Simulated assay, not measured.
Amino acid sequence: MVIDFWLADENIVFAAALVLMVALGVLQLIGFGGFDSDVDMDADVDGTGVAGGLLSFFGWGRLPFLILLVLFLLVFGLTGFAGQQFIQTLTGRLLPPSLAAAGALLVALPLTGLLSKPLARIIPQDETTAVSIDELTGRRAIIDIGTAKPGYPARAKVKDRYGHGHALMVEPDSEDGIFLAGEEVLLVRRDGDIFKAVAVGTHWLSET
Rank of each mutant, 00 (worst) to 15 (best):
G49A: 04
G165R: 12
L109R: 02
P110Q: 08
A17P: 06
I143K: 01
R93P: 04
K149A: 13
T137F: 05
K159S: 14
Q85P: 04
V200M: 00
G146K: 12
S132F: 00
R190F: 00
A141E: 09
G103E: 04
G113A: 06
G25A: 00
P172M: 07
G33M: 15
R139Q: 13
V200T: 07
T128M: 12
T79I: 00
D160T: 12
A100F: 06
R161Q: 14
L105K: 05
G33C: 13
S116I: 13
E127T: 07
L136A: 12
I87Q: 02
T202M: 06
F65N: 14
L114W: 11
V50W: 00
V198S: 07
D160E: 08
G92T: 10
D144L: 14
L29E: 03
G103L: 04
V26W: 13
F72K: 01
L55Q: 02
E135T: 15
D144G: 12
G201F: 00
P172K: 06
L68N: 13
A167D: 10
Y162R: 10
L20Q: 07
V170P: 08
Q84I: 09
L54E: 12
L115I: 06
I30K: 06
K117S: 05
L66K: 03
R161E: 13
L187H: 01
L63F: 08
F32M: 15
T208H: 09
E207Q: 11
D42W: 05
D126W: 05
V19H: 11
F5I: 03
A148I: 02
G92Q: 08
D46M: 00
R155K: 15
T89R: 07
V198R: 12
L119I: 11
A120H: 07
W6D: 02
V198A: 08
I142D: 11
E10A: 15
A23Q: 00
R155S: 14
A197I: 06
I12A: 12
A82D: 05
L95G: 07
M21R: 04
T79F: 04
I142K: 15
Y152C: 02
T89A: 15
P124R: 03
S37W: 06
G182I: 04
G138H: 06
G165Y: 08
F57T: 15
A51D: 04
L66G: 05
L27Y: 07
P97E: 00
T147L: 04
K196E: 02
T48M: 13
M41D: 08
W204Y: 10
L119H: 07
A101E: 07
L114C: 08
H203V: 11
P124C: 07
A108K: 01
D4I: 09
A15R: 05
V131I: 14
A82V: 15
L68S: 08
G61A: 08
T202H: 03
A51V: 15
P97A: 03
L99I: 02
Y152V: 06
I12E: 03
Q84E: 14
A51Y: 08
F86K: 10
A108H: 03
I12C: 03
I87S: 06
Q84T: 11
A23P: 01
F195A: 03
E10K: 10
A154Y: 04
E184A: 09
A181H: 00
L29V: 14
L27T: 12
P153G: 10
T129Y: 07
F35W: 07
L105H: 03
L94R: 13
F65H: 12
M21C: 14
L55M: 14
L69C: 11
G80E: 02
L136N: 08
A8I: 07
